[in-house]
Design a protein around this nucleic acid. Structure first.
Lengths: 330, 330
DNA sequence: GACTTCCATGCAACCGGTTGCATGTCAAGT
DNA sequence: ACTTGACATGCAACCGGTTGCATGGAAGTC
């Protein structure tokens, strides 16, 4: 059976060291204010008693708890874990802890989480928030806020521009001699989908390439697989899929139809979440979610430092990562 | 430009409602102690001022902050996101928040995180901890702890018994006529790795199958891929990999060497995190990580409620999910 | 009508730190 | 020798709640 040790307080250390509580406090926070001997004496006493400063008490009197919150719509979406990881790493460098919230894509849940987090964190990062602009503005009035993939004036934000990478994808296909390609689109109400489709059409018309859109309805493996017949029916020699999951479905569908990739057909994904762990390795558009997480937290910590709110709009460009699913047109 | 509103305190509400601070406090925590009219009056005043109880202050005086910590070795490993999600959901049901920590598989980092979390959380869940038994025991002495996939007497733990699924995997391979198989092992300090290897050896010797172990060092795509030469050198016709990521690496490595799966070689993963979204779909052992996350948090909250520490050992069985990477031996 | 009981509410101490200001000491400046 | 200032330390208020105990008034009892 395990017994719990109760906390040692600053007063106990003060008594043991024969000084006032305030001196103990200062020994930990501003040792330069005390004589070196006093500091060592206090530290020795603290050590002997196993004293650890109480985070909560400190937070109460200073208003700084050394925590920041991170709210994402869906941890299970492979886009987010690297982002979370990077955010954590960056927070850690400044001795901050991360509160993680998962909203299940539900704005009500997101609102609730923000409310619950406020008061225990010094600032918040909202990634791909599903809240309305007004709600976000309201929250930003309560505590420092940084957004990822949400573009609201006056609130610091980090945006991943998939347009640039998609453009490179089309140029890559053009260089390989493809003249007719397919865009396997994602959810019609998705901002990213719109962004990607627009970028593809623009790039293609500039390069004199024909683009047809085949809808995959949901961004998923199965809808990609089901779209294969329609894709082949267009007579295209290459496809760009809304995301890697869809691309993987298309890949599976093509294999079943004995169309080999990349010799018979070229395929490009988006977000680069699976490319490095599947076979054949998928050519894809990088997602930069790692940088997004890092930059967002770094921005937030800057805000906390300077207590000033700047209107930052940090755009991350994406690039094509060429792997093994693209080759010259037949 | 956005301006920040400062916090409304209990005193302001008390003044507005014409009552003592204690009454406001009680209106929120024990409304049954007050007359209904007083409660409504206080609530109206609180509402009007936009009062929100200060979590930190409450935590200081009650010692309960309503947070629990969850520490995982690697968020980016697809095994964990569903676990995290489930843990979060379960915590949420009891109005608890989750502190997330990522240790990058590093025991020192894990130790540091536990220390930082202690004092801001009421309890901790350690998933697949990389710490020594002694360190874990030491931490358990400081605060309520629940382990996932770590089996230490006296500390409540949730274990995913991959043994049952692995046994099925070996039986499946035996039935297909494989007589010589390889286990591609994971991190040597991982409890799951030990468990899986033991189960494979036991099942294999019972079925009169030869098993060789090839180490992949880290549970990752690349180490799986690098292990392929060693795997083939054993002359085995099938392999079971420590996890799906490793398996996927092996799959890629095999393809590069023109060994086709499953006709020439059969492959089985563990954790079933990628099987459904890759091609060919990977035969794998189900992981139950969602249940593990939910149960662990639920156990922890129980402990916090009753302030008693029970010796719980909750075992979740796994099963083989047959897909397309296994076939009869050549 | 006096006495008890009970309930709603207020008072004040407390949780464990931080911090502005006061105090005391000692050395340098004149 | 006396002032001045710098420095080390202590005192006490404060952060924003919670909670044991005291109090006062209303209702109930005889």
């Amino acid at each position: 059976m395990i017994k719990r040790t109760k906390g040692v307080t600053i007063s106990q250390v003060a008594d043991a060291a024969g000084v006032a509580r305030s001196s103990v406090s200062r020994a930990f926070t501003r040792p330069d204010m005390l004589s070196p001997e006093t500091v060592t004496r206090i530290m020795k006493a603290a050590e002997a008693l196993g004293y650890v400063p109480n985070h909560t008490a400190r937070a109460l009197s200073t208003g700084r708890h050394g925590n920041v919150g991170l709210i994402v719509p869906d941890i299970a979406n492979p886009f987010f874990p690297p982002l979370i990881q990077a955010a954590q790493l960056e927070a850690d460098r400044s001795d901050f802890c991360i509160f993680l919230g998962n909203t299940e894509e539900n704005p009500k849940q997101e609102d609730k989480l923000v409310g619950r987090f406020a008061g225990q964190v010094e600032g918040l990062v909202l990634a791909s928030s599903r809240l309305s602009d007004e709600r976000i503005r309201a929250h930003a009035g309560q505590l420092p806020l940084v957004l990822i993939n949400r573009d609201i004036d006056g609130i610091p934000r980090v945006l991943i521009d998939s347009g640039s990478g998609v453009r490179e994808a089309v140029e890559h296909l053009a260089k390989l001699g493809h003249r007719r390609i397919v865009y396997v689109s994602g959810p019609s109400n998705s901002w990213s989908n719109k962004q990607r489709r627009t970028a593809i059409k623009a790039a293609a018309s500039r390069l004199d390439i024909v683009v047809e859109t085949v809808p995959a309805v949901l961004a998923s493996y199965n809808s990609g697989r089901n779209a294969v017949s329609a894709i082949l029916a267009t007579g295209a020699t290459a496809a760009v899929a809304f995301d890697d999951l869809t691309a993987q479905g298309v890949l599976a569908g093509l294999s079943e139809k004995r169309v080999s990739v990349p010799s018979d057909f070229s395929l490009i994904g988006c977000d680069d979440v699976l490319g490095a762990v599947t076979y054949p390795a998928l050519t894809s558009v990088s997602n930069r979610s790692t940088e997004a997480g890092r930059v967002a937290v770094s921005l937030l910590l800057d805000m906390l430092q300077s207590r000033a709110i700047r209107d930052v709009r940090y755009v991350l460009e994406t690039h094509l990562v060429v792997r093994n699913t693209t080759a010259a047109a037949r």
